[in-house]
Design a binder for these strands. Structure first.
Lengths: 240, 240
DNA sequence: GCAAAAGTGTTCGGGTTACACCCATGA
DNA sequence: TCATGGGTGTAACCCGAACACTTTTGC
């Protein structure tokens, strides 16, 4: 008996079930241009509903863990990932986001650095996809990814967030490439570097990146805070 | 038998219960200065836990309603209020926010105009409180109100939001008073009015407010959008 | 030397801030 | 006429956009 065959009025009396999911963004070089682009890991559904379709990693909330802990644990179990940057995104609870059950999802979003992304346990059922070329996903997960992208872009126009997609050392041009990939627009290198140097928590190291066929750029380091479990502040509030 | 006497390991196996609550802000004149200040309606707990303490209006999520509908319905049932401005705030799910049960709350926040605020069914168990002088509330509701205040301030520094606290017609000085009350700082009247006039959706009417003992100020009208149920965008993203 | 990107200097213009000053009403 | 806020004008300042120019490497 498939879940959709359940009596509707009967089902509508059951309490809504609660799940925690996460949108994870990481950088990978585009196959075409080689420039960094946004990717995200998805897992294949191995049960109904949406059996066989790709979906955000997630799962139920265990009674003894916080929401953020549940997100972390589900992520680790399904993909092997343990992002340092993890924040709540939004709670989705529309009536028709799932078939056969009423489902409320509290969704988190995460950024992974290259060393973290390498920990992905890729398989037939776990794969990275380009964020801007997604097929049809399970549930309303296409909408959720779109919203997470909007949030990422919005937040990147402000704060100290791009570094959570880069490694420990980086050139200012690499940071600019991240901005250009995420915001999808060209930025003036000269002005961009001045702005970055003016922001706090960006420290110059005395190292340089060699091996390029031009003047070796200086390497920088991010020395700022990473949001912990209690960081609600970074959710913010700007008019559309 | 009180709820806290339940066996802990037994309780920890039950699924977390889900509730929807709302922080509602409205303006009332301060008793002392007469200037507008932020107030919010609270309801008294009439059952355990936290029996007798004041709490945010809220209740369970019915299986056949969306999250926002649940917020609206709970609000109407407990306080009589039906705010036009209603948005999701955050999902709170810490392990120890309630005693005797694991509770996850999806919290909304609302702004009411004076005509809406008048609909409050005040009683022994429903009352308005000054937002900046709250006593100890049930659950973690003090923290939630603080966060909602942070969001309100943050959002007000940006967008078209103050009008949702005022009536249909208002003077620019009234808008400035709202900003000053919420942000708790003085603003230059001359510059403030120029900024407002430059923002969209603010239309001058040909009416003037009379009865003051100085030059009659012009009345304005807000002609912009109000967030509907699907408005996720207004959640935004600015670094702390 | 040449190409290419790193890195610096300078100008321009729009927007915010500070503050002087005039206007229209009630009493 | 005076007090009080409404409303206008203006100069200083700040900051980002645009872009010319110098520097340092690989080839």
């Amino acid at each position: 008996m498939s879940p959709t065959s359940a009596n509707v009025s009967e089902r509508s009396q059951e309490p809504p079930s609660l799940a925690i999911s996460t949108v994870i963004f990481g950088l990978r070089p585009s196959e075409a241009s080689g420039r960094p682009t946004l990717w995200l890991p998805l897992v294949r559904r191995i049960r109904q509903p949406y059996l066989g379709q790709w979906a955000l990693p997630g799962g139920p909330l265990a009674p003894s863990e916080s929401l953020q802990d549940a997100a972390s644990r589900n992520l680790l179990e399904t993909t092997g990932l343990a992002p340092r940057y993890l924040e709540q995104l939004y709670a989705f609870g529309g009536l028709h986001r799932s078939v056969g059950q009423r489902l409320v999802s509290i969704v988190y979003w995460a950024l992974v650095q290259p060393d973290e992304a390498e920990l992905t346990r890729e398989s037939e059922n776990v794969r990275w996809f380009r964020a801007d070329r997604l097929e049809r996903l399970a549930f309303d997960h296409n909408d959720i990814v779109e919203y997470a992208l909007w949030r990422l872009r919005n937040k990147m126009e402000y704060g100290s967030i791009a570094y959570h997609l880069l490694g420990e050392r980086f050139t200012l041009a690499q940071v600019r490439e991240v901005y250009e990939a995420v915001l999808d627009k060209q930025l003036d290198p000269a002005n961009f570097r001045r702005q970055l140097r003016a922001t706090p928590h960006i420290e110059a190291t005395d190292e340089y990146l060699t091996g390029t066929r031009h003047r070796p750029p200086r390497l920088y380091r991010y020395a700022g805070p990473v949001p912990d479990g209690s960081t609600r502040q970074s959710q913010a509030v700007r008019a559309p």
